[in-house]
Nucleic acid binder design. Sequence first.
DNA 1: TCTGGGGTCCTAGGACCC
DNA 2: TCTGGGGTCCTAGGACCC
Length: 342
Amino acid sequence: MLHVDMDQFLVAVELLRRPELVGLPVVVGGRGDPTERAVVSTASYEARAHGVRSGLALKLAKRRSPDAVFLPVDFPVYEAASAVVMQTLRATPGAVVEVLGWDEAFVGIETDDPLAAARSIQAAVLEATGLHCSVGIGDTLVRAKIATDFGKPQGTFRLTRDNWMEVMGERPTTALWGVGTKIGARLEAIGIRTVADLAAADEEALVAAFGPASGSHLGRLGRGGGRTTPDDTPWVARAHGRETTYQADLITPDEVRAALAELAARVVDDVRKEERAVQRVHLKVRFAPFFTFTKVRKLPEPTFDVEVITQTAYDLYLALDDQRRVRLLGVRGEMVPPDGGY
DNA sequence: TCTGGGGTCCTAGGACCC
DNA sequence: TCTGGGGTCCTAGGACCC
């Protein structure tokens, strides 16, 4: 099992057409203007040395790396590069490819020499795209995925049952794929701090704390277990959403209603392209200062009328406005197909 | 200190049914 | 008036990932 992950993907693609920027701190994010409200999508290794990371506000990135070159996000170009990468992976004889995102995929392959297979894939991707990648080798998807980070950049690393505990045992649980700060804190509250702690944790205690699916998943994760083969079933979206970050907070009811109508129109437009019948729309409305999607509403079905969606979301906004100090930052409409999720 | 835009999957609790 | 056990489905919300 291999996990292939492109190195500083968005930046690397930009450097192909702007070779004069190689070696400089480069930040890709938003419209490329660090005075605007937007975040870093990808930072070059030189910018990362200044503490610039994905998700950091562009304003703060500028402060940390004043000399960095800021570039706008150019989706079509990255999509095209991604397609060539995935095509190259699929062209590997005997490979089963499970795409995880623009810039990464699992590659299942039968071989006695996984390291050679990894090197061969790196060479093929470089040849086809001019881009470098790192490859994790593992006996499970989770181990391969986590191994990749130790191989960056342009390298390989292998994590198996034999060295998992040695490499991961003393690390915090948040080093695991799928454990973020919230779950990490809840684990710590029940005395589980490290990966080794989690691996040794009582299954029943985990299930009691996190529920049947998550509880047993967490225990397995601590041991590096789980699936051992990728699934190349073509991906079918289960939801669609549209979200926008406004450069200034929307305060007045008129501003909010207009923004909601615009987003609703975009979601409806997207849903109409679905071949499957769609019967539910969830609305999530994001507010500051909570910075979270705070409400979900199921619409009367099957309703894909812009005005109905807009009015429902607007009612939501008015209800939350009662709490005072609510600033609208973004709105997201979500559609869920009848057979999807939950 | 400020906060993308696209997603996925899971859970608690209540309603309802037999 | 008090109270069963098992199951399914729905709603609202949470967490995480790239």
